[in-house]
């Protein structure tokens, strides 16, 4: 496989977020929740508090490391749920057509007509705040584009000679979908999922910012921004660093998605010698 610069940058940023999340308990200099000291509140970045401290005197750097766990979990789990729902509905709708296609299309249109954040808010309102309901809410929200892409890819792949060949060779519908169609649309689906991870991180931030996501005092990048709102003029670092973390991780997911699409293209794959 050949990797472009963008892919490498995306992979590096994503790897940084993953490492930060996994290693947080060992590399974070302070506890993100318990090491609150009002004497140290709103300190600018220095050698002890690399990213400064927040209103309660907690280390922003440590909180960002722990926040990466939340962002990653939300990004990956919600996109896995989205992709499974979207691909299952879109691929079967495209392949079978008929009333099932009409039904899936109707459902997709309804989902697209509801602003996703509002829908997630509604789900959160029913399920209550917290990480599990956040995952469910975001997992149920953004499958419509994946579904559309899966459906249209299936429609175009269905008329390819190799799908017809599989039909004449006696393959069943499910086998055709999983061996002939799915592998050939993984590119766009993976790109959608990685781009979706970026937007899931943003949605998590937004929901937490609105107080519905991760509950204080546990850190998430979104809830950190909420806390930073009142301090933004006195202690801008409290807002800048979580914001940068969100920006860089979303950028990383997006570049990774683009790079994956390129390297998954079979025309760039060469035979093992």
């Amino acid at each position: 496989m050949r990797f472009g610069f963008n892919f490498m940058l995306g992979a590096t940023l994503t790897a940084l977020v993953i490492l930060a999340g996994i290693l947080a308990p060992w590399i974070a200099p302070f506890d993100p929740v318990l090491d609150a000291d009002l004497m140290n509140s709103e300190l600018p970045p220095d050698a002890t508090f690399w990213f400064g401290t927040d209103g309660q005197g907690r280390d922003v750097y440590s909180r960002i490391l722990y926040g990466a766990q939340i962002s990653l979990t939300v990004g990956i789990v919600s996109q896995v749920i989205n992709s499974i729902i979207g691909v299952t509905l879109g691929m079967t709708a495209g392949y079978w057509g008929g009333w099932w296609d009409d039904l899936v299309n109707g459902l997709t249109n309804v989902m697209l007509a509801i602003p996703s954040l509002i829908f997630a808010l509604a789900v959160m309102a029913v399920l209550g705040p917290g990480l599990p309901s956040l995952l469910i809410a975001l997992g149920l929200t953004n499958w419509s584009w994946t579904c559309r892409i899966a459906r249209s890819s299936t429609l175009s792949l269905k008329s390819q000679g190799y799908v017809q060949a599989a039909q004449t060779l006696g393959y069943g519908d499910l086998r055709i979908m999983f061996t002939q169609i799915l592998p050939n649309m993984m590119g766009p689906i993976l790109v959608m999922a990685t781009l979706g991870m970026g937007s899931a991180v943003l949605s998590e931030a937004a929901l937490s910012f609105l107080g519905l996501g991760i509950q204080p005092p546990f850190p998430s990048w979104g809830s950190m921004l909420t806390d930073a709102r009142q301090l933004i003029q006195m202690a801008p670092w409290v807002a800048v660093f979580p914001g940068l973390a969100i920006f860089l991780s979303v950028l990383g997911f997006n570049l990774l998605g683009d790079g994956l699409r390129d390297s998954l293209d079979p025309h760039m794959r060469t035979r093992n010698p």
Binding site: G161, Q164, A165, G170, G172, T179, P266
Partner: peptide, 22 residues
């Protein structure tokens, strides 16, 4: 479909689209 597959097969027009690229 299995019996039919052993009786009739097809050679397709476009050799670029008729083989699964993966």
């Amino acid at each position: 479909r299995m019996q039919r597959a052993r009786a009739v097969q097809m050679v397709f027009q476009d050799p670029y689209a008729s083989l699964n690229p993966r």
